[in-house]
Design a protein around this nucleic acid. Structure first.
Lengths: 337, 337
DNA sequence: CTGAAAGCGCTTACAG
DNA sequence: CTGAAAGCGCTTACAG
């Protein structure tokens, strides 16, 4: 436990220069490592700093360099409970990457297409770049950031080639999982989809379709239900799915899947023996469900890290770790046997 | 949609002074409202600013005033899925209050008793104060902040009178809900509790006990189960509760309650007719459950606002809205009839 | 290799 | 009521 003695002096670069009998230019150089400086001088400065626990004032440094060493994370104000795990993991990854480069993360909760918070953030110039955490089609926020020439990266798929983005391999994962189900003998595979305005929904939908196409199978459009936002909708969909004689259900995320399981339970349909079920996003509840549900695992913490990493790179930072492409993992469990 | 013309000049206070033929002192005064200044001069400056959309550089202002206009929100890195709604709402309240005073919120995810992130934040001096979002007994983080003389407020109950905190009325709410159940005729009221190291758990536990004491009823210690962190534990507890002949269950939060409902369903025990159930934290799933579950509603967004408000006050800001005490609301639903 | 000086964009005693 | 000047704590050409 580190205790700061009560009246401890907060050193400035001036103090150090004075005490060491050098100029503050020299001190600055010793710290930043930029510019030529003698070995001995550098060590003298560095050891003084170490000993007196000097930490440069980041705000002052920022003013001089016209930087803030802050990133903004833009969170949708209205995100649903079911999206928490995703945002939380993203946030963690972003924070880790940022702080390993001595950046901090400012959060801003933005409300749909209301740009006021964004404008405030932009006007205050307290961040060097921003991360938009939910890709939405035709997003006003994105337009705005572009028009401000603010460096930013989007989390989610992005068609605009001028925009930097990171994304889980949603399409591929969806296609793979759907293919597996079809190969395992599912004849009529239903789809329970999420909010249609989210880009991720589109990707997963496409994966489902492509799996059918590549295997020369017909897509049963009457088995596709989008915007499954509550139990009522899901129950209705499940009922129709069963009536239509489907023998498999692909759920776009764990929340939808949880509701789907609940419906099946009410209707007394056994998972696996009665109908096969899989989810495109893994969570504890699916793993521990009885029977355990087949699903796709994404590494969202790493997704967040990559987002922050790309942004830092745009800001001219050197990344220590070079970034491997993102991947996913299909976890086969009892529900699709 | 506000478009910034591409090569738009970013004005500084110097530019304005020059263009208007006044000193920058005057411009500064017109903006801040501090110091004497002529009506006409002020208006001239203000309208120029308005017209050219000048926004002062917050970093520079901060350096001069030795402030940062940032608050830190300390989030536990390991928080559980079940705590999301709470943290999310807190965060929203904090962000709203902060931004209405032109402060920003920096997040830092801290890992149990590991102080490294906290030390970094402290050393970088990029925040004026901090909000600790989960009260834990004997928290190292709290000790550390105290020793640094960093202004901070804790969300959760706090016995140390030197520490500023905000808290939902957990004890009172718990007592009231337990009392209601007892008054409605519950003879043996079981308790499913959360993580014992969290302060909130302690408060709710006390409420349960006090309800019994004030009504001259005996506390059945064999009906109390703490640390109900997963379905397995809850199912075990519920079985014992039923065997012991309890006719009511008070769940400390909505996640525990959800697991409790699941157990009861498995055991084919009807809620309300078979056993009464209530929860100390409301969420959509409880409201829409069949039967709907009696629970306590807290206004967590406002809790967050109050936390930020108290901190801002400590930092010398004038709060626009004066803060009403927090309250809660018992929502009686079918599960306790 | 090292330093004096100007500058980042503000605020704030102090003087008038 | 207004302004010149110093200062916040750094960085960075420029000169030596």
């Amino acid at each position: 436990m580190i205790m700061e003695p009560k009246g401890k002096k907060v050193y400035t670069i001036d103090d150090i220069a004075r005490e060491l009998g050098v100029s503050k230019t020299t001190v600055s150089r010793a710290i930043s490592g930029k510019g030529r400086i003698g070995q001995t001088t550098r060590e003298k400065v560095l050891s003084f700093i170490e000993e007196h626990d000097y930490r440069p004032n980041v705000m002052a440094k920022g003013l001089a360099q016209r930087k803030t060493f802050n990133l903004a994370l833009l969170l949708p104000k209205d995100y649903a409970v079911t999206e928490f795990p995703f945002f939380k993991d993203c946030m963690q990854g972003i924070c880790e990457m940022a702080s390993s480069h001595d950046y901090d993360v400012i959060i801003s909760m933005i409300d749909g297409d209301d740009l006021s918070q964004l404008q405030r953030l932009e006007a205050n110039r307290k961040v060097d770049g921003m991360i938009l955490s939910r890709a939405v089609e035709h997003s006003k926020a994105q337009e705005y950031l572009k028009s401000c020439k603010e460096p930013f990266v989007v989390i989610g798929p992005e068609e605009d080639t001028q925009i930097v983005y990171v994304d889980n391999k949603n399409l591929e994962a969806s296609e793979e999982l759907a293919s597996i189900m079809l190969m395992k003998g599912v004849q009529k595979l239903a789809l329970l989809g999420g909010n249609e305005s989210f880009s991720v929904t589109k990707s997963r939908y496409q994966g489902y379709v492509q799996a059918h196409e590549k295997m020369g199978r017909q897509v049963h459009t009457e088995l596709i239900f989008m915007d499954c936002e509550n139990q009522l909708k899901v129950s209705g969909a499940v009922r129709q799915i069963l009536e239509a004689g489907a023998d498999g259900i692909l759920c776009m995320d764990d929340a939808i899947c949880t509701m789907c399981i609940e419906s099946l339970r009410e209707l007394k349909v056994q998972i696996s023996s009665g109908i096969r079920v899989a989810s495109l996003y893994d969570s504890k509840s699916l793993e521990y469900n009885n029977p355990p549900i087949t699903s796709v695992k994404f590494d969202t913490v790493r997704l967040g890290k990559m987002a922050a990493g790309k942004l830092l790179k745009m800001l001219g930072e050197e990344l220590q770790e070079d970034m491997q492409p993102l991947n996913y993992q299909v976890v086969l469990r009892e529900s699709t046997q």
